[in-house]
Design a protein around this nucleic acid. Structure first.
Length: 838
RNA sequence: GCGGACGUGGCGAAACCGGUAGACGCUGCAGACUUAAAAUCUGCUUCCCGUAAGGGAGUGCGGGUUCGAGUCCCGCCGUCCGCACCA
């Protein structure tokens, strides 16, 4: 009997698939189409285990779909623009393009070594002009359709490096390189009108029944449709010529609990106050220090500045509320101004306690109705309105409606729908991205680059010695003539957010003509993606942007598909134990070894502390590189491990013992197949097991429950091993090759060939279930007393309730337990259990 | 701060509609084969009491519904993810 030798076999079949064009997707095929897609990788340099897991899952599904008669599109490409390339350029003095392309080449080889069933003929990289040029064309189409506009928006400004920072480059309010306190600075930037589609994006979630509920809920909350009241406070003085201050609230019911009004630091009222008040100016400056991210802003200490202005309560003009400038009010949401109800909002309560403002209860917390609110925990739950005049006794919803209709009658406010979703800012002040195809002309304003001049190609001759955007200081690229009037003008130097690249790559995979972004009919023959697989970290932004982009293409008539991804699966991370020396420094898994129950350094034997199992990360050095693992154990063992044990949506802890186990299994499987001896006769138990497995695995793969499919294959393997030679056993061996083919394709091809089958197993049909072989005739019945298991017995399937009851009462163990007592009641669940209540 | 999820043996987990908790894998232990080792094979492996037969406890914690709860309800605790310029 031979051994399974992946070092010899893997490459052989990878070449065979490539030569035969096995996985090339044929648009003209009349088979049912299936589009399987995993989120394309950023070419960071090496494939990591997270990629291997992600792509293995998609691969199993793609191969299974092929075997069940589908024409499968399973492509791969590169999300190739982004900051790491520029960081590498600064640190290693390499051009971002060279760095990126070298990374792509290395990672492509790595992916190929894993034997994924990919259609490489459709490979694309977003950093190449043939991709981003088409993206520029789409941008211009959206611009023409009125879906693109410019407005002022805040960025993180590093005053020392004189550059814009990404949120992740702001650490505790400081720039990551310079250490300088970051400022919020306003720049004129490009926006896409995603809010035009807010209602539709929300409504569309309802039809995405193959998406995880949690993702739909997260998107729903992100879009954040809320019904509320927009109304005007009358101020005691005119500011900017206005004596009104417009606010928005989702809780108009709590209007009688108001104790202050607050505006954002960049609200016009705040700006006006600051003109004459140095303290206000200083406060605003303080609010604008630190990063722009919501997490930073909202978790900071609540601070306010009393402007001295007061606002009259709409129901009682002599009741005056102080107007504050506050650091937790966001200019981007609602009107940038709110009223604070400390008793029923935690932020407002913290603020009121800090500044000694009144705290009035207006919603009863059970029996608690007193106007004076005690304690430091706001009550945001349900309750009847109290201390609220005409609202008293109403529930929250009725009170909201009552206040809105009163405001509308009296003319000082109106019920509105507000969205948390904001328009998508796509401007990035960086080099390594899609150039925005706009030329700024003094006379004509922003003018789109004519389509026959696309692509606007990034200049190659740039340097990264100075921080900031090299496009900005590249005169020959930047200075051009206006396409409209011909006078001197300048190119837009901002590039597009990389989320734009990933908002349509799945369409380009389906159709990639040279002269346009995609062919409508061809793209529509594949779309929507049947199963999209990627990390949960993309649950909101990427997926929402792609859904928006698809709708935008819809509106301009380029595509009739509305939802890009019919099925979505979010997979868990690959984790590993962490190791630390006594001094706190991290060690990588290959620097440590086990001695008994303890870990020590592999070279000098010093003790090592094994820590928590965490996401693999460079900073904690708990990273395992797939390459040497594939070399040692072969692609199939790695793939098998990726599918085993952990449910795919949960984290998968990588372990040396685990990959060893997978390796042993591949060898065992090979021995089972290669060592099968012909026999006579049928083996009914094995037949049943086989067909139960065929049925179960099909379901498991379709629901991406790979860990369950793996467990069933172990059970079947165990059963075949134990079975004596027979015709049934030979059939089982021939069948299991096809059942494992999506998971361990190299081994399966080799076995298929060894068994003398014709063609490739990748093209073989998936085995059929014979329902007549699934029937069980004996079942085990549990016998409980008061819900506790006391005995089990075996009975023919379908035994009547009365017979089961008699059998149960006839058991010695039960008689002993009952000790002569009469059962009060007996519950019988046929084919399952008998529960005796004593 | 806001939003979302998750929690079952030493470990990863399974358990379909509320019906035998722990399938399957890993680890560990014992044994077989071997001159020896590796590989392989066999058995055991939730915890506690007990030589055993057997008994008791048990699905993060505290309550509840039910003949019966890992599963349903209420309240906690812990961990992880996202928060619009990381991708």
């Amino acid at each position: 009997m031979s051994r399974f030798n992946p070092q010899a076999v893997d490459r052989r079949w990878q070449k065979a698939w490539e030569t035969a064009g096995t996985f090339a997707a044929d648009t003209a095929s009349d088979k049912p189409k299936s589009y399987v897609l995993e989120m394309f990788p950023y070419p960071s340099g090496r494939i990591h285990m997270g990629h291997v897991r992600n792509y293995t899952m998609g691969d199993v599904l793609a191969r299974y779909k092929r075997m069940t008669g589908h024409e499968v599109l399973h492509p791969m490409g590169w999300d190739a623009f982004g900051m790491p390339a520029e960081n590498a350029a600064m640190e290693k003095k390499v051009h971002p393009g060279d760095w990126t392309r070298a990374n792509i080449a290395a990672m492509r080889d790595q992916l190929k070594s894993l034997g994924f069933a990919l259609d490489w003929s459709r490979e694309l990289a977003t950093c190449e002009p043939d991709y981003y040029g088409q993206e520029q064309a789409l941008f211009l189409d959206l611009y023409a359709a009125g879906l693109v506009y410019r407005k002022e928006s805040a960025v993180n400004w590093d005053p020392v490096d004189m550059t814009v920072l990404a949120n992740e480059q702001v650490i505790d309010g400081k720039g990551w390189r310079s250490g300088a306190t970051v400022e919020r600075r306003k720049l004129s930037q490009w926006f896409l009108k995603i809010t035009d589609f807010a209602d539709d994006l929300l409504a569309g979630l309802g039809e995405l029944d193959q998406w995880p509920d949690k993702v739909r809920l997260m998107q729903e909350n992100w879009i954040g449709k809320s019904r509320g009241l927009r109304f005007r406070f009358t101020l005691d003085q005119r500011i900017n010529g206005q004596s009104n201050l417009q606010v928005f609230t989702t809780r108009p019911d709590t209007i009688f609990g108001a104790s202050f009004v607050a505006v954002a630091a960049d609200h016009p009222l705040a700006q006006k106050v600051a003109e004459k008040n140095a303290d206000a100016q200083a406060f605003i400056a303080q609010c604008q220090a630190g990063g722009t991210s919501a997490a930073d802003i909202e978790s900071a200490e609540k601070l306010g500045f009393d402007t001295g202005i007061t606002a009259a309560h709409p129901f009682q003009p002599e009741w005056e509320l102080p107007v504050y400038i506050a650091n937790f009010v966001l200019m981007d949401y609602g009107t940038g101004a709110v009223f604070g109800v400390p008793a029923h909002d935690q932020r407002d309560l913290d603020f009121a306690r800090k500044y000694g403002l009144p705290v009035r209860r207006v919603v009863a917390d059970g029996d608690e109705t007193a106007s004076d609110f005690e304690g430091d925990e706001a009550w945001s739950g349900e309750g009847a309105l109290v201390n609220s005049r005409f609202l008293d006794g109403m529930d929250i919803e009725d009170a909201k409606a009552a206040v809105i209709s009163r405001a509308e009658e009296e003319g000082w406010g109106e019920g509105t729908t507000e969205w948390r979703l904001r328009d998508w800012g796509v401007s990035r002040q960086r080099y390594w991205g899609t150039p925005i195809p706009i030329i700024h002309c003094e006379d004509c304003g922003p003018v789109g680059v004519p389509k026959d001049q696309l692509p606007v190609v990034l200049p190659e001759d740039v340097d990264f010695d100075t921080p900031g955007n090299p496009l900005d200081r590249h005169p020959s690229w930047k200075n051009v003539d206006c396409p409209q009037c011909g006078t001197a003008a300048r190119r837009e130097t901002d590039t597009l957010d990389t989320f734009v690249n990933s908002s349509w790559y799945f369409i380009r995979f389906a159709s990639q003509p040279d002269d346009k972004p995609f062919d409508k009919a061809e793209a529509e023959s594949w779309l929507p993606v049947g199963q999209y697989i990627g990390g949960v970290e993309h649950a909101i932004l990427h997926l929402l942007y792609a859904r928006f982009w698809t709708r935008a293409l819809n509106r301009i008539g380029m595509l009739d598909v509305k939802e890009p991804f019919a099925g979505l699966f979010t997979q868990g991370m690959v984790t590993h134990e962490t190791y630390q020396m006594g001094d706190g420094s991290w060690l990588s898994p290959d620097e440590v070894t086990r001695e008994g129950d303890d870990w020590v350094h592999i070279e000098h034997g010093e003790p090592v502390k094994a820590g928590r199992v965490e996401k693999m990360s460079k900073s904690k050095k708990n990273v395992v590189d797939p390459d040497p693992i594939v070399d040692q154990y072969g692609a199939d063992a790695v793939r098998w491990f990726m599918l085993s044990d952990s449910p795919p949506e949960r984290d998968l802890p990588w372990s040396e013992a685990g990959i060893e186990g997978s390796w042993r299994f591949t060898q065992r499987l090979w021995r089972l197949i290669d060592g099968n001896e012909a026999g006579e006769g049928e083996d009914k138990d094995l037949d049943r097991k086989l067909h139960q497995t065929i049925e179960g695995i099909g379901e498991d793969i379709e629901t991406l429950s790979f860990n369950k499919a793996v467990a069933k294959l172990y059970e079947l393997t165990n059963a075949i091993e134990k079975a004596a030679a027979s015709e049934s056993r030979t059939v089982a061996v021939r069948t299991i090759v096809r059942l494992v083919a999506p998971m361990v394709p190299h081994l399966a091809e080799q076995a298929w060939e060894a068994l003398g089958e014709s063609g490739m197993v990748a093209d073989a049909p998936w085995p059929n279930v014979d329902p007549s072989l699934l029937v069980e005739d004996e079942v085990t019945i549990a016998i409980q007393i008061n819900g506790k298991l006391r005995d089990t017995l075996s009975a023919a399937k379908g035994t009547s309730k009365a017979d089961l009851e008699a059998l149960a009462l006839g058991s010695d163990k039960i008689a002993r337990q009952l000790d002569g007592n009469e059962p009060k009641k007996i519950i019988v669940v046929p084919d399952r259990l008998v529960n005796i209540v004593a």
